[in-house]
Design a protein around this nucleic acid. Structure first.
Ligand SMILES: [Mn+2]
Ligand SMILES: [Mn+2]
Ligand SMILES: [Mn+2]
Ligand SMILES: [Mn+2]
Lengths: 216, 216
DNA sequence: CTCCTAATTTAGGTCAACCTAACTTTTATT
DNA sequence: AATAAAAGTTAGGTTGACCTAAATTAGGAG
């Protein structure tokens, strides 16, 4: 197993889990490699029994592949907690460096880091950190974009993409922040949110990348 | 710069610094690759201006190569401090995992780790940790093997090699431990050391891999 | 000074991970 | 159903890092 292969498995999991097939196109985009390279690598991984390919349709992890993907995600998220909690990283910096650190995980390292951090449940961006045995129970959340004017809710999770993370942190959005939707622009228009201290506007696109709890 | 190349530079520094040429044989041994691979890689690195080769004689870092080597060593040793101080690693485990972590060092990570650890001066095995600007002032130490019966001194530094580190830790030797040499076996025989609590014997070979302060 | 041995270099491969270009299959549109 | 566009695969090539085997050089022993 190399860092490269690990990233293929991890992205395959993030894109499709065990629910549905993931297209090579998507993989090629998130991994930033040519489609041909994806075909090639997925073939190797399927020979190693880590995923199953439906030619021309897409691919999906096997239980073995899933195990590896989850342990990667576990490492990634624990490192993020460390970088932010102890080293003063920003959201996007943490995500970047965790992308490398996740591959250094003889599981002794991950498990000890987990203990050092006192077994955190979520990464700084709100994703669940799988347990050492691979167990991971996802919360059921809804998209901010699906809220209506007047709804009050809490930010629970955000997608991890450098520019988006910087944008959110500049806006002062944090996991756990409570807010009320004060207006929703028509035709994929912007959302206006009343936070505790201030009011902010975010684009419809951003609202599609933010997960929130059920509104009250 | 790849992790591989980094390790070549680092080992070249550890073996020869800026004082003398290092033979390919030595490099081939510490890096555990074939001599031919060393020739090849050193050629590439010399084309990148990171070292200078005297054909058939050996090679030596340039200032550029030195800078990289030192920052690697810095990362390596800081990670060791973290792993031992906060994650409960043993001497040899720490050295092993630091070997990987050292390559993840966008210097923002190293520098923040340094601050988090409160700017430690030495790694757990007693080597000096270079500063962020590359400055590094080595202490002048002597070999335990050169001590005479009756000498009293302190353990200051040990060479980092897995089996050796485990051996030392089992013997209860730590950096800073004070001891008195109570006997020296003839003909490369063992050294007997009186520590605070107990008396131990170590082989001549081990005594050549342990550095101590001037005896009083 | 010659010869031998050990160290080094060179030559010719392998393997992982990528690429581009050409071809095939699927799917969406008329 | 025919065709065009999009997605996927195959073929052929590159680069980095390694290897073994063969040739070359340096340095020491006689
Ligand atoms: Mn990664
Ligand atoms: Mn995260
Ligand atoms: Mn290393
Ligand atoms: Mn050390």
């Amino acid at each position: 197993m190399t860092p490269n292969k690990e990233d293929y498995l991890k992205e395959l999991y993030k894109l499709g889990g065990l629910d549905h097939l993931v297209s090579n196109k998507q993989m090629s985009q998130v991994l930033e490699v040519a489609p041909a390279s994806v075909s090639e690598m997925l073939n190797k991984l399927s020979q190693e029994g880590l995923l199953v390919i439906e030619p021309y349709k897409g691919s999906q992890l096997t239980p073995d592949g899933l195990r590896i993907a989850i342990s990667l995600l576990r490492g990634h998220r624990l490192w993020e907690v460390f970088l932010i909690r102890h080293l003063g990283y920003t959201w996007s910096e943490a995500h970047e460096d965790a992308e490398l650190l996740e591959h250094i995980s003889p599981s002794r390292l991950t498990d000890r880091l987990d203990r050092f951090l006192n077994y955190p449940e979520y990464c700084p961006h709100g994703s669940v950190i799988p347990k050492s045995d691979g167990q991971t129970n996802e919360d059921t959340l809804m998209l901010l974009a699906d809220l209506k004017t007047g709804d009050t809710s809490k930010i629970k999770k955000v997608l991890e993409e450098k520019k988006f993370l910087d944008y959110l942190q500049n806006q002062g959005i944090e996991i756990g922040t409570q807010f009320t939707v004060t207006s929703v622009g028509d035709y994929e228009g912007p959302f206006t949110l009343a936070l505790e201290e201030k009011t902010i506007q975010i684009s419809y696109k951003a609202a599609c990348q933010i997960f929130v709890s059920e509104p009250k």
